[in-house]
């Protein structure tokens, strides 16, 4: 099949960008979307043009490196699938595709379809962990964890940190990403000691990074390649509101660590 691509090209973070048109010829339906771009890039190099920069690594849908908008949908049309696992059999001959980078103030474009997602790391650094000194842990079976809790925790922990939820959200909120981590750790007994600190600090970091606010419309859930439900955002809201209420007026008592 042959396709027409409209791709966002931008030399670097400071340069202005624009959409450019490319032809993708003789695309096999067994190719992955990124393999199709590989072929386009080989062609561009042969024509002494600059290849399209896009992020990718594992190409099996788990590392979270890849991701861009395909016709306005994060990771393209197939639900629960990263763009590296999206195959060309889902497209029709002659289709026009618009490829754009994730757009958010918190995700500055570095080049073409590559954005800086360092903000997500900083959200984790703000509290997305359980503090446990190496070697100090009790036996693995010392604290039993109900299977239901472990399952919900795992549902949330499946997040690959690709940023599709931010890209799909009309408000560029990172609520699903943050909610997933808060739910992952908050549902396990091991995560209880820092639960309220985590919910306060991670949400505060969201604002410092200029992510938007959640308006509960659910675009993130639909875009998530791991199909993490927005229930995780409700869990974050719960933990955060509870923690905010419990620590209200703690200013004078000189809170802190």
């Amino acid at each position: 099949m042959n396709l027409t691509l409209h791709v966002w090209r931008q030399a670097n973070a400071a340069a202005p960008g624009r959409m450019e048109r490319y032809d993708a010829r003789n695309v096999s339906e067994d190719m992955s979307f990124l393999e199709m771009l590989d072929v386009v890039n080989e062609q561009l190099i042969a024509e002494s043009k600059e290849p399209i920069a896009f992020e990718h690594d594992c190409r099996e849908g788990i590392c979270g490196s890849c991701g861009f908008m395909v016709n306005g949908v994060a990771h393209g049309p197939q639900r629960g699938t990263t763009v590296c696992q999206l195959h060309m059999r889902h497209f029709k001959d002659g289709e026009e595709l618009y490829l754009e980078p994730w757009r958010a103030t918190a995700f500055p474009v570095l080049k073409d379809l590559v954005v800086d997602r360092g903000a997500l790391d900083r959200i984790i650094a703000a509290g997305g962990y359980v503090s446990v000194r190496t070697g100090s842990a009790p036996d693995g079976n010392a604290i039993s964890v109900p299977k239901e809790a472990a399952d919900i925790s795992m549902d949330a922990a499946a997040c690959i940190g690709c940023g599709a939820c931010v890209a799909a959200c009309p408000n560029a909120a990172a609520a699903l990403f943050t909610g997933a981590k808060i739910s992952h750790l908050g549902t396990l007994p091991q995560g209880q000691a820092e639960r309220s600190r985590r919910a306060l600090r991670m949400v505060e970091q969201l604002s410092l990074e200029d992510f938007g606010a959640c308006t509960n419309i659910g675009e993130c859930e639909a875009a998530c390649p791991k199909q993490i439900p927005i229930e995780m955002i409700a869990r974050m809201n719960h933990d955060h509101l509870k923690a905010a209420w419990q620590t209200r007026g703690a200013r004078k008592s000189g809170g802190g660590e």
Binding site: R197, L200, R201, E204, N237, A244, T247, G255
Partner: peptide
Amino acid sequence: LAPPNSARSLFSSVI
């Protein structure tokens, strides 16, 4: 970041 349990977070928080 402000200390985690400052009252500031109560009103500045988007949640």
